[in-house]
Amino acid sequence: MKAHMRAELNGLAACKPWTRDEIAARAARDIPEGFYVNLGIGIPVLVANYVPAEREVIIHSENGVLGMGPTPEPDKINRWLINASKKYVTLVPGGSYMHHADSFAIIRGGHLDLCVLGAFQVAENGDFANWLTSADDTMPSVGGAMDLAVGAKQIWVLMEHTTKTGGSRLLRRCTYPLTAPGVVKRVYTNLAVIDVAADGFVVRETAPGLTFAALQDLTAAPLRRAN
């Protein structure tokens, strides 16, 4: 029996997986005031929409923006101000611009408290893969991911728990080419919040209605409950 079918029998049918926005909102809750944070493309950029207004979190964008604000109103677009996804954004009061070498000095130099990235796969040893899906990818595109992965003080990954065909994105070892070895500290998926500890994955929280056993069935690496 396929893992996802077994999981359905085990009660996944009753589970309400988190949406992309809910994953982002869940992660945003855990970002402390005063953190300097870089948000990768995909689900991570949504995190900016969910940081509580009264909490000062400063968002960095690799293309030279520190203090990035939300999407502008259509009549207030600054056409020289975009984010890493090349979408129009705003600058918050106190924000600043810098050139690319300084922007990556911020990244590589260990000045960011947190980087939130998307991924294809995360392994129980903290390895992750987010730039190539196979060895012969037609257009390898790495962007700033490798710099962010080794530079920020902490790396969180936000992603769907499984692939479109139901395969686990959480693995014992990554099968895709790595972005960086051993750096992921926490994973937020549509099914769970999972820490990457020295001895593997530790489940901190599951989506409403999802049992630990059902989550384990959908995960191709051993899970442990948090104490």
Partner: peptide, 20 residues
């Protein structure tokens, strides 16, 4: 690229910035 008419050298963005 698919037709093999251009060579691609992929460099991490921060490494490219620092090499420059």
């Amino acid at each position: 690229y698919r037709e093999g008419r251009i060579e691609l050298d992929v460099v991490p963005q921060g490494t490219m910035a620092e090499r420059l």
